[in-house]
Design a protein around this nucleic acid. Structure first.
Lengths: 180, 180, 180, 180
DNA sequence: GATGAATGAGTATTCATTCAT
DNA sequence: AATGAATGAATACTCATTCAT
C-alpha cells in the first residue's frame, strides 16, 4: 500500500487510542513499517500529521451529512441523523474518541483552531438547515442544543459512565425529536 | 502560604490551562517557588498530584450539590441547579476545562479511573434524586440526558464554537426543564 | 539558467551567510528550485559541492592577482593590490566570510586541506614576487607579515569589531607599504 | 571533581578541536563521564554551555593583560605582550582555535554577539593604553593594526600555512614594534 | 539530466524521578 | 519539611544520501 496512506491510518488509530501527546512518532512508524524520516517528508512535523488527519475526519463528517436524504420531511431527516449517530457511536468509538481528544486538549486545540472552526461552522449550518423547517424562530438555539445533546451523550458514553444505557437513551432522544 | 497548598493551586491552574501532558513538573515548581524534590515528597509522583487535584474538584462538586435547597420542589431545585451551572461555567472556565481534559484523555482517564467512577456515580445519583420526583418511571434515562445536555453545552462552549450564545441556551434549558 | 550553475551560486551564498555546517542541502535545493537528487548527481556529496565552490573562489583570487599591473614598480603594484583588497572587502563581505569560515572550521579545513595548501602557496608566491624587488633578503617574512596584516584586518572587520574604521586603516596601510 | 567543571573542561577541549557544530553533546557527556541531562540542568542548552565557555576565555584574556607590567615603558610592555602572545600561540593552539572558530562562524557569532563586543572593546582599550604613550595622535589606528597583525598571524599559523616560520615572524614583529 | 520518495543514523532537548544533604 | 544536583530514557526533528523512475 501507499506508505503515506499507511502512515495516516496507523497514526489515526494510535492518536485515537492513546491520545496525541502520548503517541510517539517512533511507535507510529514502527507499526506502519516505515522509517522515521518519512513523517517529516510527507507531513513536515507531528502537528502537520495531526492536521492532515483532522482534515480527513472532517471530510468524513461532511460526507455523512451530505448523503442523508434531502427530499424528506425534517422529522424523517432528524430520525435518520440520530440513528446514524448512534450506530456510528457504537461501531466506531475511536472516531469519537479522537475528535473529543483533540478538541478538548489545549495544545491540540490550538494546533487545529482554524480547522475546528471550519468544521463546527459546517455542522451548525447543516443542523440549522433541519430545524429551520421545524421552528424557524428558534432554529439556532435548537440546533445548538441538539448538537450539545449528542456531543454530551458521546462524552458520557466514552469517558464518564461505565455502563451507559445507550439503547434507552437513543429511544428517548428519538421520541423527543421525532414526536413518535 | 503552605508550600503544599501553593503547589496544588499552581498545578491545578497549569493542568487546566495547558493540559496534564503539556505541563512539566519543573514549570509547576518554578511558578510555585518550590524545589523539584518537594512534589515527590508530598505526592509521590506526577500522577499522585493529579489524583489529589481531581479529588479536590470532586469535593467541590459534592459541596455545590449539597448546598442547594433540599426542601423545595424538584422544579425549583432544578432551576437552582441549572442557574448555578451556567454561572459557574462562565465564571470558572478552567474548572470545566480541567475536568473535560482529564476525562477525555486516555492516559489521564486511566490514572483517574476509580475516582471518575466514584464521582459520576455521585452525580447520577444526585440528579436522579430530582427526576425521581418528576417522572419516577423514566428518572434514570432523564437524568442521563440532563447530564449529557449540560456536559455537551460545556464542551461546545469551551472547545468548539467560537461565539456560543450561552445566555439564550440557558433560557431555553430553563424553559424546557422548569416549565416556565 | 543552468541548474548546475544555479545550484553553485545558491550554495555559495548560503554557505557564506550561514556557514557550511548550518546550511542544509534541502534549503539549497529549495532556494535554487531544484530537486534534492541533483546535488549527488552533479557533485557526489555535500563535501563535493564545497570543494567545487572553494576551487571557484581560488580561481577568482588567481584571476584578481593576474590582472594587476605586472610592468609597474613594486610600490605601484602593492598600492594597487591594497586598494583592490579594501574595495573587495567592502563590496563583497560574503566572499571573505566564506573563506574565513571554511579555513577556520576544523571539519571543512580537513575536507579542503589540499585545496587550501595549493591556494596559500600561490598567494605566498605571488606576494613574494613583489617583496623580492623591495627587500630580497627579507622577502619571505615580509610577505607572510603582509598577508597576515590583510587577513587580520578582514577578520577584525568581519567578525570582531562593530565599528571598524576601515578607511583610516587603509590609509595607514598604504602609507606604510608605499612610502607615500 | 565537580561535574559542572568537568563538563566545561571537556566541552572546551572538544569545541576547540572539532568546532562547536561538529561536537555532539552526547560526546561531551560521555567523555566527561556525566549524564546527558546535566548539561540542560547546569547550562540550559548547548548555546548556554558555549556562552559559559566563551566568558571564561574572556576572563583568561583579561587576566593575562592585567598581570603584565604596568610601570614599565610602553616599549617594554609591548615587547612583553608580543612575547607572551607567541609563547601562548605555540603552547595553546586550541585556545586560539576555539576563539577563531566561534568568532568566524555565523551561527556561533550570533550566539556570542554581546560577549564578543564586550571582549573586543576591552582588548582595544587595553592596547590603546600602550600606543597612546607612543603616538597619541594615531593611537587608535595603530592599535587596530597591531591587533589585526597578531590575529592575522594566528589565523595564518593555525589555518592556512603548513610550515609557518613563527620564530622569524616573531623577530620581525619585535623589531618593528620595539625599535630594537 | 532530473525527480522526489524513502531511509536511518544522529541531534538537542525535555522531563519525571531519585537521593544525599 | 525542603533542596537541587544528577540521572537516563524518551522524544521530535534534521539531514545527507540512495535509488527507482
Amino acid at each position: 500500500m501507499d506508505k503515506r496512506q499507511e502512515l495516516i491510518e496507523t497514526a489515526t488509530k494510535l492518536f485515537s487510542e492513546k491520545g496525541f501527546e502520548n503517541t510517539a512518532l517512533s511507535e507510529i512508524c514502527e507499526k506502519a513499517g516505515v522509517s522515521k524520516g518519512l513523517i517529516s517528508h510527507h507531513f513536515k512535523s507531528k502537528n502537520g500529521l495531526l492536521k492532515e488527519i483532522f482534515k480527513r475526519t472532517t471530510d468524513l463528517i461532511v460526507e455523512m451529512n451530505q448523503t442523508s436524504a434531502k427530499e424528506k420531511s425534517p422529522y424523517v431527516q432528524l430520525k435518520a441523523l440520530i440513528e446514524s449517530f448512534f450506530i456510528q457511536l457504537e461501531a466506531d468509538k475511536l472516531f469519537f474518541q479522537f475528535n473529543l481528544n483533540v478538541i478538548v486538549q489545549p495544545n491540540t486545540r490550538e494546533i487545529l483552531k482554524d480547522l475546528i472552526m471550519e468544521r463546527s461552522a459546517f455542522i451548525l449550518q447543516s443542523t440549522e438547515g433541519l430545524f429551520i423547517k421545524i421552528d424557524p424562530k428558534n432554529s439556532k438555539v435548537l440546533s445548538y442544543l441538539f448538537i450539545a445533546e449528542l456531543d454530551g451523550i458521546a462524552l458520557n458514553y466514552l469517558g464518564i459512565f461505565d455502563d451507559y444505557p445507550l439503547e434507552e437513551i437513543k429511544k428517548q432522544i428519538l421520541k423527543k425529536y421525532t414526536k413518535q
